[in-house]
Structures are given as C-alpha cells and as structure tokens.
C-alpha cells in the first residue's frame, strides 16, 4: 500500500500537525519508503496466531477504588502556557 499527497494531508490533520505543501510532498516520499519497508510483514503466515497484548504474562494489578492523591491544582497548572485561577486557558471553543 502507498499513500498519496491527499492522504498525507488528511493524516496530518488527524494527527493535528500543520503541514505546508512542501512538507506534505516530502512526507509522502518518506512515508512510502517506510510503508514499503513494512510491507514484508504480509508474507508471514499468522493463521491462528493471537496478537500480542502483553509482553510479559502478568495479571493486571488492581487497587482500592479510593482517592489517594489530590489538592495539587497549582502543581498541575504550573507548567501551562496560559492559566487563570487554576484553570487552563484555551481559545474559545463554544460560540
């Protein structure tokens, strides 16, 4: 499978990365080189093979459903580019 310029632009938008026409052209070539490389996986017979979901067999750890942390609002917003009274500020999203 290979990608065309339109697909690259669509994927860039899905990934929320602005791309210029020139970026998209370059990426088309690079992505096709990588997709060409991974193509060889199709020759592997995977009949009856389960996809890997956990690299080491281990039981999912569970903990009490209880509050163990909190009162850290100032820490949480400390690195944000724009905040107001412990809220993150973003451009208007609701008209």
């Amino acid at each position: 499978m290979s990608v065309d310029l339109q697909t690259v632009k669509r994927v860039a938008h899905l990934a929320r990365i602005a791309v210029s026409e020139e970026d998209a052209q370059r990426m088309t070539g690079e992505l096709n080189a990588i997709l060409g490389f991974v193509e060889q996986l199709n020759e592997v017979d995977v009949t009856g093979v389960e996809p890997m979901t956990s690299v080491t067999p281990m039981e999912m750890k569970k903990r009490q459903d209880a509050v163990t942390d909190g009162n850290k609002a100032a820490d949480i917003v400390a690195n944000a580019p724009a905040t107001d009274e412990n809220f993150f500020l973003v451009p208007k999203v609701v008209e």
């Binding site: 697909t7 899905l14 997709l35 996986l41 199709n42 592997v44």
Partner: peptide
C-alpha cells in the same frame, strides 16, 4: 518525530488497523 506520529496515525486509522497494527502484533507473538 512528525514522521513517526504520521506513520502511527496512518496505521491506526480506519480501514488500515487490521492490515498493519494487528498483523504486526501477531508477528510480535511469533
């Protein structure tokens, strides 16, 4: 980084998940 995010987004996008990601995870089992 952009290149890898793009590849990742593409292989996980609708219609390609089985062909790429699922196949790769099966090969990983092998």
């Amino acid at each position: 980084v952009k290149r890898r995010i793009m590849i990742g987004t593409y292989v996980l996008s609708a219609g390609y998940y089985d062909a790429y990601y699922l196949q790769a995870q099966k090969v990983r089992t092998l």
